[in-house]
Design a binder for these strands. Structure first.
Length: 464
RNA sequence: GGUCCCUUCGUCUAUCGGUUAGGACAGCUGGUUUUCAUCCUGCAAAGGGGGGUUCGAUUCCCCCAGGGACCGCCA
């Protein structure tokens, strides 16, 4: 058996869809698990819609999540000559024929089929007609002579044996009347020329496979193995589309989902390995197999993505988290000044505590990042005259303290609770709002200590 | 409409015919933390329906229902 080679073959007509990312991930993981290679093929033959910027975006997205392809990317449009040559060979060997039906004629057939509520299938009119009777004014398309009798079986590595009546596969077009090859032909030729051993793709391609297999057989090429994975659905159970809120990688990265977390989530969506939930990159390569892929479609669940991300935030190396946070802020928020960076770094242990995303950490860090607190915020209304007195007292009390820490701070807070006959919340909440502008956030001691005495007093005195 | 695929807690899933049907996320309790969050207890939560095969079916077979994919001179 030759070395395993897989591929991911997106068309560069838009941003990479999260379903595509999973397909790419499975292909990549399988090849790495088998010590094989993974290739990227750009199917850019739809000239109207294909754009270079999408190609770069796709490569960038894959890299973001940890996938890199082996070798150069294979550009399908550069191989059109090869595809046409194969079409001619099929024609010569009587596996294909020219079809001179006009588009009106085809439309008419489709219309009639619709009226009779029958499935449309091309009537094979030109399969046996000689070119002598061909109309001169029509440029022909070339159709593949598909099998009519019997059944075909696809031995799918995920779906099992899938059997289909050959008569349900029409004589599909392999070359358009403008001389360009169509998808099923091009994809097959490319997969063969790239020496692919395993085709792992969405099960929306399952029917195409029966067409493609016939081309392999006609050309006497070795068949690759096929594995059709179920599609991802929305939480409502519908097919995931670009219109759905979060379906591209950018949608996730901009809210602060980390690549490793999304990779782990996607890995477990439709695939499992016993009860294991958390997989490092190395583990996912080590354990990935086709056997673990389920046959039923799975739904995208944001709360699981979030909790996976939360898990990574809490468990990864803090310095790594810090680096990812800086990158995230620079990309989606704003660059953070050097003086603030050190403070954030040393405070990360508690800043990350309440966060599910990098955006949450950024929000928790705002009181450090910004020197001015916007007093027009809603939460400031919670500070009444009594609260102002507490704030003022607190500010005076800490003047005498040399070293601000939990031990020196606690008695001050406790005394205030007692003298104002209130509880911790009664003292802590006004202080937090005064210092950060929000009633939510890190623990009050953490805030005060991270800010330092001068800054704390400065902010408190502004209120009163 | 035709062809093909799918169907276990709300969600992702485990189960190689015999299990109190397990885990994780979400949900809800309780506890720690003198707010919130974290963390820790615990609870609740599933085999679509109907027939077979079998001593025994979530597991094997058939039918039905529901859902999905495909049915382009797009990829």
């Amino acid at each position: 058996m030759s070395k395993v080679a897989t591929r991911f073959a997106p068309s560069p007509t838009g941003a990479l869809h999260i379903g595509g990312v999973r397909t790419a991930l499975f292909n990549w993981l399988y090849s790495k698990n088998q010590k094989g290679t993974f290739h990227l093929r750009i199917e850019d033959t739809d000239i109207e819609r294909s754009k270079d910027e999408y190609k770069f975006q796709i490569i960038k997205s894959l890299k973001w999540i940890g996938i890199e392809h082996d070798g150069d990317e294979y550009i399908q449009s550069k191989k059109i000559n090869d595809h046409v040559n194969i079409v001619n060979e099929l024609l010569k060997n009587n596996h294909a024929y020219k079809c001179y039906c006009s588009s009106e004629e085809i439309e008419e057939q489709k219309k009639r089929a619709r009226q009779k509520k029958l499935p449309y299938i091309y009537n094979r009119k030109w399969r046996d007609l000689t070119e002598a009777v061909a109309p001169k004014n029509i440029k022909p398309v070339i159709r593949f002579k598909s099998k009519i009798d019997g059944t075909s079986i696809l031995k799918d590595l995920v779906q099992g044996d899938v059997e289909i009546e050959n008569s349900t596969i029409e004589d599909f077009i392999i070359l358009r009347n403008d001389g360009t090859p169509t998808y099923n032909l091009s994809a097959t030729v490319d997969d063969h020329q790239m020496s692919m051993t395993h085709i792992i793709r969405g099960d929306d391609h399952k029917i195409n496979t029966f067409k493609q297999i016939q081309i392999y057989i006609a050309m006497k090429w070795d068949l690759p193995q096929f594995a059709h994975i179920p599609l991802i659905h929305t939480i409502e159970g519908k097919k995931l589309s670009k219109r759905d809120n979060a379906s591209t990688l950018d949608d996730y990265s901009k809210i602060g989902i980390m690549p490793d977390a999304l990779r782990n989530y996607l890995l477990r969506l439709g695939w499992s390995y016993e009860d294991k939930e958390i997989f490092t990159l190395e583990e996912s390569i080590k354990y990935f197999n086709l056997k673990g892929i389920g046959k039923s479609p799975s739904k995208l669940d944001m709360s699981r993505i979030l909790s996976m991300n939360e898990h990574y935030i809490k468990t990864i190396d803090e310095n790594d988290l810090y680096q990812q946070l800086l990158k995230y802020c620079e990309l989606f928020k704003h660059k953070i000044e050097n003086t603030k960076r050190e403070k954030i770094k040393s405070s990360l242990t508690f800043l990350k505590n309440k966060a599910k995303t990098l955006e949450d950490i950024h929000n928790n860090s705002k009181y450090i990042i910004f020197d001015e607190i916007d007093q027009n915020q809603e939460d400031f209304k919670l500070i009444d005259s009594n609260a102002k007195k507490i704030i003022s007292d607190f500010s005076k009390e800490i003047s005498a303290i040399k070293d601000l820490n939990r031990v020196t701070l606690e008695p001050v807070i406790n005394n205030l609770i007692e003298s104002y006959k209130t509880n911790f919340k009664g003292v802590g909440q006004p202080l937090r709002i005064a210092l950060t502008g929000s009633k939510f956030g890190p623990g009050i001691y953490d805030i005060i200590i991270s800010l330092g005495k001068d800054e704390t007093q400065k902010r408190l005195n502004k209120i009163v």
